[in-house]
Amino acid sequence: MPDHFLFTPGHEAYRARVREFARTELAPRSSEWDRAAVLPREALRLLGDHGLLGIVAPRSRGGEERDYVSLGIAIEEIAAADVSCAQIAWIQNTIGHFFPGWGEDTLRAVQRGEAAIALATSEEDAGSDVSAMKTTATLDGDEYVIDGSKIHVSLTPGASVLAVSCRMPAPDGRRAIGMLRVPADAPGVTIAPMEQMGARAHSLGAVRLDRVRVPCTATLGAQNEGKALMYARYNVSRCLSPLAALGAAGDVLRRTMDFARGKVVFGRPIAMNQSVSFPLVEHQAKVEAGRLLCYRALWMNDQGLDASTEAAMAKWFGIGAGIDAVKDCLPLWGANGYLKEFPIEQKLRDVLSLNFTGGTLNIMRVLLVRQLLGADFAGLRA
């Protein structure tokens, strides 16, 4: 087994293919989807038509059966064109992959862009601290009865089926965390949009579950396996969110460097001023460093290695580096950077949304303290 990561010629060819699609099909529609602020069915169809919603799914189920590094490449290139579409793509790829039990018909529809699935886990007092979860599923004959509320649910309104985390009866009499497949239109399900500043086209909502009944066969994964499934997904998804930030930042840096070479002030291009050129090259270096952290962690997942520490590092560093790059590029455009006519202000709003996906950056720091210094120093209760 190799002990290091390298892109293969196949990876580079795949990057070129996705980049061409994203620049020609997604980027021209990005501002339109941002203004509409609803889950864009057209984007789902485009992503499905190009195989970008089943990247790691097996070929026997209509997927492309690629590795996690390829998934990262796709997310980075899609985010350079539209961050919302990148979020849609990584959510559909990872929920379908890590949570067994959706059913083949549902997954094939998702991969074609004809349906969407969503992950409903966060609550008002239970985000990264899943032990504080209050949503319950009570056994009643051959059905579960679900009661509770979820917030910050991506792809809602819009998703047709939800993966709902809840406390369920366990064999030892306690309540463990499980995942249930819940149709979005099931009786007792109420969905309300949550208006957000950026990544508006990926749609964000609150879900209320009032005595919602689903059959016992609606369990995703083994009974009471929900927490383990969520954590396995984190090891990959925490590499994808920073790649989205870095993909968007890379696009903004490229545009800003072109602008700085051509914008003449006091008789010379502004790129000749070190107050302009130094930040640009420094941010480019940080973007490259963040990319390598992310791809190394994805490669470790491909090798079957525990990448929990590396994924937390990648997320903390990569998202911070991406946000800082876009934020510092915006004023170099002068007042134009603030105008909706130019893509910079939307990119800044969009990358800021990545602060909160799969745990905040402060939570990544806490996880790293626990993993590198020891649990006694992380400030978490036993």
Rank of each mutant, 00 (worst) to 15 (best):
L204M: 14
T217A: 10
A245N: 13
A13R: 07
I75E: 04
M133W: 01
R17G: 00
E65M: 12
L280S: 11
D129R: 08
E124M: 11
W90Y: 15
L348P: 08
L352P: 00
R238T: 02
G48Y: 15
D376H: 07
G127K: 12
L280V: 15
E345C: 01
Y234C: 11
E64W: 15
I78S: 02
E341F: 14
M313E: 14
A199I: 00
S241C: 05
S31F: 13
I323N: 05
D140N: 05
A43Q: 09
A244G: 04
P100D: 07
K327N: 15
P100S: 15
R365E: 14
L243W: 09
T138S: 10
Q111E: 10
A116Y: 09
T309E: 09
M179T: 02
P343K: 10
Q92H: 04
L298G: 06
W333H: 08
R208Y: 14
W299F: 11
I88S: 08
S149F: 05
G247R: 09
I323S: 03
A228Y: 12
L380Y: 14
A311H: 11
A228Q: 09
K286R: 14
G127S: 07
A289R: 13
S237P: 01
T24I: 12
Q87V: 11
G141F: 05
A16T: 00
S30H: 12
L44P: 02
D34H: 05
V38R: 11
Q196K: 14
W299R: 03
Y338E: 02
E124T: 15
I270R: 12
P343S: 15
R181P: 00
E76F: 13
Y338T: 12
G62W: 14
R381Y: 08
G10D: 01
L209H: 02
E225W: 15
G322F: 14
M272E: 12
Q284K: 14
A325W: 11
E143G: 10
S277C: 13
H4M: 13
G173Y: 07
L332F: 09
L53E: 09
A176N: 00
G63P: 13
P171Y: 06
T256C: 04
D49I: 10
S241E: 09
L367S: 03
A228L: 15
A163H: 02
S165N: 09
Q371G: 09
S277I: 09
C166M: 05
A43L: 13
G72V: 06
H152I: 06
A314N: 04
R200D: 05
L180S: 01
L367Y: 01
G158L: 13
L354A: 09
L229T: 10
R19T: 00
M313K: 12
H97K: 11
G113Y: 14
D140R: 13
L280G: 12
M257C: 13
V164D: 02
V264S: 01
S203P: 15
L53F: 11
R15L: 01
I146D: 00
R291D: 02
A297H: 03
G62I: 06
L6R: 07
R167C: 05
W299G: 00
G148T: 02
S60W: 12
L361S: 11
V110Q: 08
L305T: 00
A80E: 06
V161N: 04
V214R: 07
L280E: 05
P28E: 08
S275H: 06
A378R: 03
K347D: 04
G320L: 01
M133N: 00
L352H: 03
G10Y: 07
P331K: 10
I363K: 07
E76Y: 08
